[in-house]
Amino acid sequence: MKVGVKYCGGCNPRYDRGNFAQKLSNEFKGIIEFENAQETNQYEALLIISGCTSNCADYTSYDMGKAVIFATEEASFETVVKELKQMLNK
């Protein structure tokens, strides 16, 4: 499965967004390919990693696949993992 990763612009992030993406990548090593989202590419899901609950990233020009998944805080990790696992199991 290929997931596009789109970040907010990081004006005042409450957690390390890059580290969050790395942790996810490690969690799904060999199962999900995470790629910095490109407007020309297609994905099965789009993951938005926002630094805060404002969640202001503009992702309208990206392929959203079957789902758009949001992370807005460090604690979003478990929820994101769960949502991705559900997608894998479908």
Partner: peptide, 11 residues
């Protein structure tokens, strides 16, 4: 930088 381009770039 992917982590900052949403603020740094625009159409």
């Amino acid at each position: 930088h992917p982590e900052y381009e949403d603020l740094m770039t625009v159409t």
